[in-house]
Nucleic acid binder design. Structure first.
Length: 436
RNA sequence: UCCUCGAUAGCUCAGCGGUAGAGCAUCCGGCUGUUAACCGGAGGGUCGUAGGUUCGAAUCCUACUCGGGGAGCCA
């Protein structure tokens, strides 16, 4: 026996560096199969899953009886020798010498059989232990890392806008009202206006953080709380904005492909569809889109916004995301810059992801003229006092500027090929679901 | 808010007018190479709630509650 020798504490993803060595792994039982005098414990430790073999004739009696006691999600520490073995799906397995039962998990609810979504969401705190959910969370982390990398390397400064705000950014969507001492406040639905202020201070800025919309939306594309990444750039035109977006998103997808191939494969993603995400992205004007949709037999008139099925049909023509640009000014937010040559359309674009994932980015050039912005305030009945600071940005050294917001969960859902955005958040907030 | 589907064992479901079922999970037993292991046995349910029709309701009707999918709105 090797009791006198100290095991090397390591993790499953490092196990290939320890062939034939005596190691210690700390984790949980993922599943177990037994065959009388031999037990196969599938151990997970957060970095991976490995098969640990306990042979009755090779270990002390109490070690074998411990291996009989442990069940799914029991916490255990395993000491054993790393063996190369083609019978194991990882290619390696642990020949167990000692097994410490840290704690048990009686009647663990999330079994490896099928479960309904209601049950899984009620047990989200346990559901995230499964390989598929872990892979999604890994990809989400990589998406955020890739976004920071790209922006940091391209002269952007991260600025964090407030979560508690005195006013609405868009004026259209439903907000969460909260008590802010003696006055009313709202949870942010976008940091954009603050990012415009920051862009005038730093040139190029971005934010990443949660936003909240109290809309009674219940579809595979909606969360009540979701993350947005919002870059805002001084002296950027509408064209500059689109060029940045396609370069940014392509870089993000390619970095995720490079670092998360294992996870994407586990999720069953078609990697070729992601490899196709390279600039330039197709660009379609709103005018063209309406004509095209009418030709497809859809009931839409110039001046109306697109519905979800319209967006899906538009996006399905292409193998990469498509920009739909220059929407009617009237259906878009008050701060968007009208096209100087055609004031009835705005210098804005939505980026539609392929495969029916819908709008993942919305961006525009912002109004920088003080008088025009003031007109918009009265047109939209916005209270001048609450937005005085925003108007100030047009008063003191105003410049043309542009920005966009990208929805993190929709982007992750698209990259992972998920059925629903709820799996792209560790603890999704959904309509009528605030638990766990 | 509207449309639509659903609620039966811990989980996933079958049963659709005549005494409540299966697989998995759990517990007991067997198996030295299992891959959602397998084989034998056991325990486990006022069929979402309330009312109605009927000799008789999990099953038919009404209302309510909770949930899924979608629309609108949006990222």
């Amino acid at each position: 026996m090797s009791q006198t020798k100290q095991p090397i504490t390591t993790t499953i993803n490092q196990i290939h560096q320890h062939i034939d060595q005596f190691v210690r792994l700390q984790g949980w039982i993922y599943s177990k199969r037994s065959s009388g005098k031999i037990q196969f414990l599938q151990l997970r430790d957060g970095s991976g899953v490995i098969q640990c073999v306990v042979v009755k004739s090779e270990v002390p009696l109490e070690v074998f009886s411990t291996s009989e006691d442990v069940a799914q999600e029991s916490a255990v520490i395993v000491d054993g020798i790393v063996r190369k073995d083609s019978r194991s799906s990882l290619g390696y397995e642990i020949n167990v010498q000692d097994l410490i039962h840290v704690s048990n998990a009686p009647d663990y609810p999330v079994t490896h059989k099928e479960h309904g979504i209601d049950f899984l969401l009620d047990h989200r705190h346990l559901w995230i232990r499964t390989p598929r959910q872990r892979a999604i969370l890994k990809v989400r982390a990589e998406v955020l890392r890739a976004m920071s990398n790209y922006l940091d390397q391209n002269g952007f400064t991260r600025v964090d806008p407030p979560i508690l705000t005195p006013t609405a950014a868009e004026g259209t969507t439903e907000l969460f009202h909260i008590q802010y001492f003696d006055e009313e406040a709202y949870l942010t639905q976008s940091g954009q206006m603050y990012m415009e202020a920051a862009a005038m201070a730093m040139g190029k800025v971005y934010s990443m953080g949660p936003t909240f919309r109290a809309e009674r939306s219940k579809t595979r594309r909606h969360l009540i709380e979701f993350w947005m990444i919002e870059p805002e750039m001084a002296y950027f035109t509408h064209e500059d904005n689109l060029n940045l977006q396609e370069s940014f998103l392509s870089a993000v997808v390619q970095q995720v492909l490079e670092h998360c191939e294992v996870e994407l494969t586990l999720l069953g993603r078609d990697l070729d569809r992601l490899r196709a995400v390279q600039p330039p992205f197709p660009r379609m004007s709103y005018d063209e889109a309406v004509l095209w949709l009418q030709k497809q037999g859809r009931d839409i008139q110039w001046g109306e916004d697109f519905g979800a099925p319209d967006e899906t049909e538009l996006a399905n023509q292409f193998d990469r995301p498509v920009f739909i640009q220059r929407y009617p000014t009237k259906v878009k937010a008050f701060y968007m810059q009208p096209d100087p040559e055609r004031p009835e359309v705005a210098l804005c674009a939505d980026l539609l992801a392929p495969e029916g994932y819908g709008e993942i980015v919305g961006g525009s050039e912002r109004i920088h003229d003080y008088t025009l912005m003031q007109e918009r305030f009265s047109d939209y009945n916005l209270p001048n006092e609450a937005y005085a600071w925003y108007l100030d940005l047009r008063k003191y050294g105003s410049v043309p500027h542009s920005g966009f917001g990208i929805g993190l969960e929709r982007t992750v859902a698209w990259i992972c090929g998920l059925e629903h955005v709820r799996e792209a958040a560790a603890f999704p907030r959904l309509l009528y679901r605030l638990y766990p």
